[in-house]
Design a protein around this nucleic acid. Sequence first.
DNA 1: CGGAAATTTGAGATCACTCAATTGCGGTGG
DNA 2: CCACCGCAATTGAGTGATCTCAAATTTCCG
Lengths: 256, 256
Amino acid sequence: MKYEDYPAAAAPPGGSNPCDKCALRRLEAFLPCSPEELKTIQSFRVGARRVAAGGSIIEEHRRSPQLFTIYSGWAFRYKTLSDGRRQILSFLLAGDFLGLQDEFADGHTHGVAAVSDVTLCAFSRDRLWELFHAQPKLGYDITWLAAREEKMVDDNLVTTGRRNASERVAMLLMHLFRRAQRVGMERDGWVEFPFNQQHIADALGLSLVHTNKTLRRLQRLGLYKIDAGWLRIMEPHALEALGDYFERPIRPTPLI
Amino acid sequence: MKYEDYPAAAAPPGGSNPCDKCALRRLEAFLPCSPEELKTIQSFRVGARRVAAGGSIIEEHRRSPQLFTIYSGWAFRYKTLSDGRRQILSFLLAGDFLGLQDEFADGHTHGVAAVSDVTLCAFSRDRLWELFHAQPKLGYDITWLAAREEKMVDDNLVTTGRRNASERVAMLLMHLFRRAQRVGMERDGWVEFPFNQQHIADALGLSLVHTNKTLRRLQRLGLYKIDAGWLRIMEPHALEALGDYFERPIRPTPLI
DNA sequence: CGGAAATTTGAGATCACTCAATTGCGGTGG
DNA sequence: CCACCGCAATTGAGTGATCTCAAATTTCCG
């Protein structure tokens, strides 16, 4: 695995001292961070990266030399079986930290791909241990993020294992909407929604055709609207009840 | 949440200085640990707990005041929907660390129940942060364990989302066998297998009846045997190929 | 030995899948 | 400006895997 295999780091978003000025840190969704921690994060950071919609962020069977925090855009983690069946494990958006699993498993974890154009902050994997050592608090925070991500996968597992098609779709729409809302992506009740039906099918463990039919049914019931890549939830309570999924207000989380 | 709600800690397995003498630490599956780390772990430890087969280790909607490492026996993490449908998220056995998710989510994560009789080492949740602070290496190890657990849930999600019934069963049998083998539970090719078909169905997202029929089919093909609560894999290659699941030798992991 | 729980089997219903064709839409070249 | 292309979305039809219901049968346990 060589660094050169990766595109050169682009200019980090936000100028020369980006972590200070990072727009994400102004959101209520994220916990404040001491100047000292910020400095450590900054030194851990090696640059930014931009991946076009549809592009690959981490190859499925390769170990990325970097860890990332998503700055903007939607991505997803996935695994494929040898005959091509694909399962999306979870979706990622601003503030999500990725690449950690690779640290502890010898490759063969999961791939990450961009749905929309994605901007990422890149961190040096080599210095991860150093980070834990220098600032135990940041280590604790990373554990926090890992636990939070696992909780999301747990939820998805319940969905594919025990919910029927309508319930799955209802739950996913609410889940994605709420998460986007949380990081300030809502505009007049609409949220950017760059997913196609194949993404949804692969996330829910359904076929493309059945996903389409289910999506249409809920749309005809007036529960949600999708227009030109934007999503609006018309009947949040109905969708939550249908999916038996009640997202409680999420506590602020750390931002690395 | 009061401590009194929990049964009093029983005598820790292994005597008065158990972490030193812990039988698990002699296994190749676990990384060695410096005397200093061991001392910190020891001080973090508040006792042991024993839960009878079928008993509850962590209630689904309550925050456990303790974290645990499994010392012996099989357990599982699960979630239930409001109408009672249950999904098993993952199985736990010796060396697995549990209760971490609760640290970062306000309850409402998952329940943990014992399949066989289970013995656990209990740790004080209050002192978790202190542990990260005092021994960053142990914090790093806990993150490692969290990432490893997430990887298992990822695998299960692929299973319920994209594998058919036979593939699911094949993959689960191999998975459980290999994990038990890894921590020294194999005896003459057999491994203790205290699960009933409802457990398997709930883990795989199948109905009980269909699980039974699938299990029988694979058994009639001579791929495995179950006898008096013990499992033997007769055709590992066939099961691995069927499940498209090839467990690679797992690296030694930390043991907290 | 008796009773409860777990397993097994059969039968019919249903949800989700596959195959196949059509429609809608944005982009592109003439 | 329009015909044409490719991809995503949509719809229909028939199939099949899995589910539910129901009833044995076996195993476990007191």
